[in-house]
Computed example of a mutant assay.
Amino acid sequence: MRETTLEAPAPSTWGEGLVSVREGEAVEIAARLESVHEGILVTAEIDTAYEGVCGRCLTDIREPLQVEFQELFAYPGDEAVDLEVQDDHVDLETEVRDAIVLSLPFQPVCRPDCPGLDPVTGERRSGDAGAAPQEALDPRWAALAELKTDADADKA
């Protein structure tokens, strides 16, 4: 068994959605490599950061990302396997990239209670929970708003 830690920059941008790990971003990997009968078992913890925009209000965000994975790299043999030990080495780049991309949030938010954008003005909402959202009045019906019925007068 061998434990090792390494830090390397991301060789390219990982992720295509609202957020991604940018090229050159530091990726720290703490790996444990264990020799087993079938090959080398790799258990790794990855620390990096992603950046992009909030899915609700479109402000810039940058958040840390921690991912764990475990894969078995098989010794070369007669059977076809996805991951194979090559010249007593294992190539972790594909596994690290896949683990990071799969753990990126699909709908990232700047904070859990982000109110988003106002659909009428397009401005960022203030987040005041007490204020009820104002309904947009269709201008074609504006003239009817001036009409009052007897039932409306009784309510007032």
Rank of each mutant, 00 (worst) to 15 (best):
E68D: 10
R22L: 07
E135W: 11
A129T: 15
E95D: 07
A31D: 02
G24L: 04
T4F: 02
T43D: 14
Q107G: 00
E51N: 13
A8L: 04
D78C: 03
R56A: 11
V53N: 14
C57D: 07
R2I: 07
G77R: 08
E28I: 07
A145M: 12
A31L: 11
Q86D: 08
C54A: 10
L137D: 12
V19G: 04
E51G: 14
L65V: 00
D60N: 13
E51R: 14
V67S: 01
Q107H: 03
V96E: 04
F69L: 05
E123S: 02
I61W: 08
D98L: 02
P119R: 02
W141S: 10
L147F: 15
A10V: 03
D138E: 11
D82L: 00
G130V: 13
A132N: 13
G55S: 15
D152V: 10
W141P: 13
A156G: 15
G55D: 12
L65K: 10
Q66K: 09
R97G: 06
A153G: 13
D47I: 08
G77K: 12
L33R: 06
F106E: 06
T121M: 00
Y50W: 13
L72H: 01
L83C: 06
A142N: 14
P112T: 01
L65N: 12
V120M: 03
A99S: 10
D118N: 10
I29Y: 07
E123L: 05
D113G: 00
